[in-house]
Design a protein around this nucleic acid. Structure first.
Lengths: 342, 342
DNA sequence: TTGTACGCGTTATCAG
DNA sequence: CTGATAACGCGTACAA
């Protein structure tokens, strides 16, 4: 960005001082500029094709207009929907979004937060779940505290374990409601594609689901809870593993939709029909589901709104206590888990 | 970002000058710092939890570390894959990505470019197709020229009609190859869900496809070329329209996969079976296709690589002439267009 | 090798 | 209402 026209150029061209030019163009809050002068400045700016330098403005004002977003993979519909919510909210607040991705390496979140702190992003939204890993959490906590100490504000999507504002999705309630709905439809031999063992979102969903079936007298066989990655490939692998050992399962709950789709692919590949041979349910209600056959039962999470909420939370005035915004979930029964007659 | 520790603080703490602190931390190219001093500075920085201010650095250096990206909708798998390519390439170059979205309003592209110019983004990648609208193109051309004049560089994904570096996808070649492949499979009564009339990517695909069938003696009935939006809803609506008038079509070509998926939904809804009653093909090979049944025939575009290429192009040394990188496409025949026996 | 001092483009304070 | 001028935080000639 070499030879840009600066405000001084505009001021000179308009025959006014730098200060006046600044006020005329920016429309400073309290200060007002005489109309004819203002017009002269605007005309000069137009003539010179002046473009304010947002960096210099940030410098002078002491705050930037950027919001950071940390995701694991922008091609994952879960994250892209959240990203849409974040960009929408940011746009509404006249802010820009800096998109960063860990490429599925959770430990990179910390680096990205530090990076965004360097950019002096006004706020940062971290979209990934937390893990049951106190060491990792402590590192992240420190990074976020540093960022907050420097004036930044953060919102997490996930679990409120880092001392910052958090959008909490009702994972347990959703998974429990799903379990009850499936039980009501006649399912008695559930299996779970459970995701990473220490992944808190996965765990919340997995355990709530299992608890309900246990309470209802049809406990999930521990051998039928298959861990794996929180991805399409993870779901596929877990499903293969499950199908290799479980002949008597009637419904499979994948702790997220992306995994459920992987599982569906595995089933198809192995000649297991869904739902005739095996019912299948996921979680999140990602956009992709509208194109999947059979229509997949899931628990809807309003992802775009989650992104929007997180952004608004991060942008709101700071509060003494970390805030929590709870987002309800809703069971959506579809054809992949039909009423069981057998 | 109020009370940040500055480099001066670090310098004072370390008992050195600002310049030395700067050189020690940044590792200035030519200048070198005596080891013990360097260590003292680094220790001080660590102790004070110093974080360099990227904005101030940008200011002083005269260039930022950000790359702008303009998409229409980040939840569209086409764009999210390109975005993944862009963030990947940016990351490799130690740059950050500013994500902006038009929300499906092409005319907003110009504003977003201006916005990114204000941020002094080093480079901007515009991911959407051009339109056959010389007025709009001229406006965009001017915006890009202004940005380039200010030192920015741009890469487009689409058509090289704006005088800037462009990644060109072989739409025509791909659509033609697809048409030949479908003809070879026995299809003779093609229809096209053609997208927006003036949308150049849609037009290139539509016309190349139709030309081939015409040359082969099975011209597309003009009544069977249904325009519409370049979206899921657009594909669905177009398919409904088509099915209302065309009883004798044997294959439908949707000019992109997202539309094809909309069309598939419409067909399903109307009880038209794909491929038994009607074959269907799309274009792009978006990630979503891996989860769709029947597997959809399409023309693969290496979307992540397109994003990467565009970013590299924009980041490369400036050239006198606008460069063009052509990306080949590849027909992928799947079950949605089986060999036709009837 | 180190330090001084200026400049980057803008806002904001404080006199006029 | 307008105009100097001092910040903002950092990089880098230039001098020592």
């Amino acid at each position: 960005m070499a030879a840009s026209v600066t405000l001084s150029d505009v001021a000179r061209e308009a025959g006014v001082s730098l200060a006046t030019a600044s006020r005329a163009i920016n429309g400073s809050a309290t200060r007002t500029v005489r109309p004819d002068l203002r017009d002269r400045v605007l005309a000069a700016a137009e003539r010179l094709r002046y473009t304010p330098d947002a960096n210099a403005q940030a410098m002078a004002r002491g705050r930037t207009t950027s919001v950071g977003l940390v995701v694991h993979d922008i091609t994952d519909p879960y994250f892209s929907s959240i990203a849409a919510g974040v960009t929408g909210a940011a746009d509404a607040a006249d802010l820009q979004v800096t998109l960063t991705s860990t490429q599925h390496r959770p430990e990179r979140e910390v680096e990205l937060v530090r990076l965004l702190q360097r950019q002096r992003a006004r706020a940062v939204v971290v979209a990934g779940s937390r893990y049951d890993d106190e060491d990792a959490n402590e590192v992240m906590r420190t990074a976020l505290a540093d960022y907050a100490a420097a004036g930044g504000s953060v919102a997490l999507v996930g679990q409120p374990v880092l001392g910052v504002d958090t959008v909490v999705v009702e994972n347990a309630a959703g998974a429990a409601a799903l379990a009850r709905a499936l039980y009501a439809r006649g399912y008695r031999r559930p299996a779970v594609l459970g995701g990473p063992l220490t992944h808190l979102t996965a765990r919340e969903r997995r355990e709530a689901f299992a608890d309900v079936f246990a309470d209802l007298g049809s406990p999930v066989d521990p051998a039928h809870v298959v861990p794996g990655e929180f991805t399409h490939e993870g779901g596929e692998a877990a499903m293969r593993e499950l199908l290799a050992v479980a002949a008597d399962v009637d419904v499979v709950f994948a702790v997220n939709d992306v995994m459920a789709l992987g599982a569906l692919a595995a089933a198809r590949d192995l000649g297991v029909r869904v739902p005739q041979d095996l019912a299948l349910a996921g979680f999140d209600d990602i956009l992709t589901l509208r194109d999947v056959v059979p229509p997949l039962t899931t628990v809807r999470v309003p992802l775009v709104e989650v992104g929007r909420l997180a952004t608004e939370l991060a942008l709101a005035d700071r509060s003494a206590e970390p805030r929590v915004r709870t987002v309800p979930t809703e069971v959506v029964l579809r054809a992949s888990t039909p009423e069981r007659t057998a």
